[in-house]
Simulated scan of single mutants.
Amino acid sequence: MAKALIIGAGDGLSASLARLLAREGYAIALAARDTAKLDALVAETGAVAHACDAASEADVAALFAQEGDADVVVYNPSFRTRGPFIDLVPADVQRTLQVCAFGAFLAAQQAARRMLARGSGTILLTGASAGVKGYAQSAPFAMGKFALRGLAQSMARELHPQGVHVAHIVIDGGIRSAKRPEAGKDSLLDPDAIAESYLHLIRQPRSSWSWEIEVRPWVERF
């Protein structure tokens, strides 16, 4: 049975992706700092949950020691600090970079080592609007997501010819959730619809691999 490992799992996009991949026959492994929040999703999908700080080298290594044979690895964690540039707290900026970019490097490196050994696999990195345009009072998030995008592009150029598919997904808009209900007709991205785009990337024939796609509501400006 194929296996998918979703890092940074919660009740949004990652939950939609876990449900979809479970329906498609994947064995699901979930990783999050707080696994208690995953109880319902674990029960629904039959997933295995692991406690993991995505920015910790030791935690990520331990996670892959247990779940390293995954055919699909999705990196979904995010951390954001906002405010006027001159007032930003350095420790918060550092944490943003660690979670958004360094953690992605740690997970992708662990995944790539195993996938290269067998000559196949898919690594998907969840990006954001901030990875292609920096917003005012959001410099740390832009730094982290720009770095994530660069990581994906460099990995794709190196790993695609070796049989490992790497893709970066720009989520350009807000995602609908219980805390963020629909504000207008299709003004927020449906997480189930985003998950379908991830599945498309997983299934892409290698003769037409994408290294990056953007998804946004049809009313979103860009």
Rank of each mutant, 00 (worst) to 15 (best):
A15S: 10
G83I: 06
D59A: 13
A147K: 13
A139W: 04
C100F: 05
S207G: 11
E220H: 15
V219D: 00
D69R: 12
S210M: 09
S129E: 03
Y75K: 05
Q98L: 09
A156H: 10
S129R: 13
G8I: 15
A183P: 03
Y75V: 00
A111V: 05
D53K: 03
A61V: 06
A107V: 01
H168W: 11
A15Q: 06
E212Y: 09
A4F: 13
A91K: 12
A128N: 06
A40R: 11
A62H: 08
Q94T: 06
I6P: 02
M1F: 11
L124F: 02
S120W: 02
A128E: 02
I202T: 14
E196L: 14
S210V: 02
G12T: 10
G25Q: 07
V48D: 07
S138R: 12
R157Q: 02
L63K: 04
Q153M: 05
G10V: 09
E24Q: 15
E57R: 14
G83N: 07
S210A: 14
L30F: 03
E182F: 09
R80Y: 01
D92I: 02
L17M: 10
L30N: 04
T35S: 08
A65K: 12
A111R: 08
A47Y: 05
S154N: 10
Q66D: 15
A27P: 03
I123L: 09
L106G: 04
I194C: 01
L41P: 03
S16R: 06
R216K: 00
A183T: 12
A111S: 09
D186C: 09
Q162Y: 07
K3W: 05
E182G: 13
S197N: 03
R82E: 02
E57T: 08
A31T: 03
A43C: 04
Q137R: 10
M143L: 15
Q153L: 06
M155A: 14
E67C: 05
D69I: 04
P217Y: 01
A62G: 10
T81R: 08
Q204M: 07
A70M: 04
A47C: 04
A70R: 05
A91E: 15
I194V: 14
M143P: 03
A117L: 09
R114I: 06
A47Q: 04
L189H: 09
V93A: 10
L201H: 04
A139F: 07
A167L: 02
L21I: 08
S208N: 15
L97R: 10
E24K: 14
